[in-house]
C-alpha cells in the first residue's frame, strides 16, 4: 500500500502531464468545452426543479432553496458518474499507451479521477453564483434564504472521501472492463439506479424506515452530507458519514486487490 502511494508520487509529473493532456483535449478546443461541464448539471437541476417544485409542489423533500439543494448534489454526482464511466475505460481507452510505457498501471485510473476532479472544481463557480443569487433574492423572500455557515469547511473532506471512493471503484472496474465484454452496458444501468439511490433530489431522512438505512450504505449518501451542511440550516448526520467512510475503505481495498490480481491477465488481453 505504502509502496503504491510512493510509486504514484514518483510519477506525479507524468500524472500531471496526463491530466493536462486530458483537460487540453477537452478545453483547448473551444470555450464550449467549459460550458459543457456546467450545462449538464445545470440542465438536470433545472429539470428536477420544474418537476418537483413547479409540478409536484414537493420542494419540502429537500432543503430550501430546493434548486441550490439540487445543485449541491448534482455537481458531486457528475464527478462520480463521469469518473466511474471513464475510470472503467481507463485501461481500455489507453491500450496503446498501456502497452508501450512502463508506468505503474494504477496511474491510468488515478489520472481519470484527477482530471474529472478538476472539472468538478471548475464547475464550482456556478454553485457560488447560485448561492449569491439566493442570498440576494432571500432578502425579500426569507423562505429561499440559504443558511451559509461554518460547515463549509467539510467540503474538502467530502472531496477527499469521494476521491478515495472513485479511485477504488476505478481500480475495481478498469480491469473488469477489459476482461468482460458487457461491462459498459451493466454499468450504465447500475449508474442510473445509483443516481436515484443517492440523495440528490431528496433528503435521505425523507426515505421511510428501513429504506433510509439501506441508503446509508451508498457511500455517496455520507459524502453529500459533507458537501451540503455548509449551505443549509442543518447539522451533519454522522450515521451515513461513518457508514460511508467504512464502505469507501472496503471499496478501496477491494479495488486494489482486484487490480493487482487481474493486472497480468489484462496486459495480455489489451
Amino acid at each position: 500500500m505504502a509502496s503504491a502511494v510512493r510509486r504514484l508520487y514518483e510519477n506525479r509529473r507524468v500524472l500531471r502531464i496526463m491530466v493536462q493532456r486530458d483537460l487540453s483535449v477537452r478545453y483547448a478546443k473551444s470555450f464550449l468545452g467549459y460550458l459543457w461541464t456546467i450545462i449538464d448539471p445545470l440542465a438536470m437541476s433545472m429539470i428536477y426543479f420544474v418537476v418537483f417544485v413547479l409540478i409536484f409542489q414537493r420542494a419540502g423533500h429537500g432543503y430550501s432553496p430546493y434548486f441550490l439543494f439540487l445543485l449541491t448534489g448534482m455537481l458531486p454526482w457528475q464527478w462520480f458518474n463521469g469518473s466511474v464511466t471513464a475510470g472503467a475505460k481507463a485501461l481500455q481507452s489507453e491500450a496503446k499507451l498501456v502497452r508501450s510505457t512502463r508506468l505503474p498501471r494504477e496511474l491510468w485510473v488515478v489520472r481519470v479521477i484527477v482530471a474529472k476532479g478538476i472539472e468538478f472544481l471548475l464547475s464550482l463557480p456556478i454553485l457560488v453564483a447560485a448561492t449569491i443569487i439566493y442570498l440576494i433574492v432571500g432578502q425579500n423572500d426569507p423562505t429561499v434564504l440559504p443558511h451559509v455557515n461554518w460547515q463549509l469547511v467539510f467540503i474538502p473532506l467530502g472531496m477527499a472521501l469521494q476521491a478515495v471512493l472513485l479511485v477504488g471503484l476505478g481500480l475495481l472496474l478498469a480491469p473488469i472492463q477489459v476482461l468482460v465484454n458487457d461491462t459498459q452496458q451493466v454499468l450504465r444501468i447500475v449508474l442510473r439506479v445509483m443516481f436515484y439511490a443517492t440523495p440528490i433530489i431528496y433528503l435521505v431522512n425523507k426515505a421511510p424506515g428501513v429504506l433510509e438505512k439501506i441508503l446509508w450504505f451508498n457511500p455517496m449518501t455520507g459524502i453529500l452530507e459533507f458537501y451540503r451542511a455548509g449551505f443549509f440550516d442543518s447539522e451533519i448526520r454522522w450515521g451515513p458519514v461513518i457508514v460511508s467512510v467504512v464502505v469507501t475503505a472496503i471499496v478501496f481495498v477491494l479495488g486494489r486487490l482486484v487490480f493487482q490480481r487481474l493486472e497480468p491477465a489484462v496486459l495480455k488481453e489489451i
Binding site: R21, S24, V25, K96, L97, R99, S100, T101, R102
Partner: peptide, 16 residues
C-alpha cells in the same frame, strides 16, 4: 531504465 521502441506512436494524440 528502458527506452522501448515498441508501438512508437502509442503516446501520440491525433488531435493535438
Amino acid at each position: 531504465g528502458v527506452a522501448p521502441l515498441i508501438e512508437l506512436t502509442g503516446g501520440f494524440l491525433g488531435d493535438l
